[in-house]
């Protein structure tokens, strides 16, 4: 996983609320057993018309947003299906951070596992960032995770993040290894549950 430290890039405005994972990664791209080849799928039906031609009106098809690294989004971004393909696809088109007033739960978790920084901010703060993102001259931003700070044209906006998540993102760490290091505690829990709720351990098999 690529660590997230300080990233500078274009922020694209995507203020429509409830952008769901069916829109972020339509079903026809989900028929695979690996995580590759998903760049074409990201926002596919917004980016391309039915004949595969780019839709010029979609923000990520416009200069300079084609190179966007951040998305400034509306409420409830990433709602819907649990498909992690949505996050993989965003990363593959170069998105490193999502900023929104609220981000749907499963999607939020998926972001964090893949090093995609998900930031929630009050609506008024997101509106300020949006006002910069819509301007072609003001849409470049810097996100410094260590300092928990977003810098945009004339703005220095602090954000908050859970410290554990922050460390994992900064290090690009392996989440599973960290839990495996707690195996003795898992074993203790299992022994305990075996004693207090023995029927959980006496399940009928097929």
């Amino acid at each position: 996983m690529t660590p997230f430290t300080t990233v500078t890039g274009i922020a694209a405005p995507l203020p429509t609320p409830n952008i769901d994972t069916d829109v972020i990664m339509p079903k026809q791209f989900l028929k695979r057993i690996d995580r590759e080849g998903l760049a074409i799928g990201a926002f596919h039906d917004l980016r391309f018309d039915a004949t595969g031609v780019e839709r010029p009106e979609f923000i990520l098809n416009q200069h300079p947003y084609r190179a966007a690294k951040f998305l400034i989004c509306g409420d409830n971004f990433g709602c819907g299906s649990s498909r992690e393909y949505a996050v993989w696809g965003l990363l593959q088109i170069g998105i490193r951070a999502i900023i929104a007033p609220s981000i749907a739960g499963i999607f939020f978790g998926n972001c964090e596992k893949n090093g995609l920084l998900a930031i929630t901010l009050p609506k008024s703060d997101v509106a300020l960032l949006l006002s910069r993102a819509v301007g072609r001259d003001t849409c470049t931003m810097e996100i410094n995770l260590k300092a928990e700070m977003i810098k945009a044209d004339g703005l220095a906006m602090p954000f908050k993040i859970n410290q554990n998540r922050k460390q994992l993102l900064l290090a690009g760490a392996d989440h599973i290894q960290r839990t495996l290091d707690m195996s003795p505690q898992i074993q203790t829990y299992e022994k305990d549950q075996h004693r207090t709720r023995p029927w959980f351990w006496n399940r009928p098999s097929a």
């Binding site: 649990s82 498909r83 499963i106 999607f107 978790g109 998926n110 596992k113 989440h175 599973i176």
Partner: peptide, 10 residues
Amino acid sequence: FGIGTSEIEH
């Protein structure tokens, strides 16, 4: 509750 693929692996 629903989870993503990384969590399935976890």
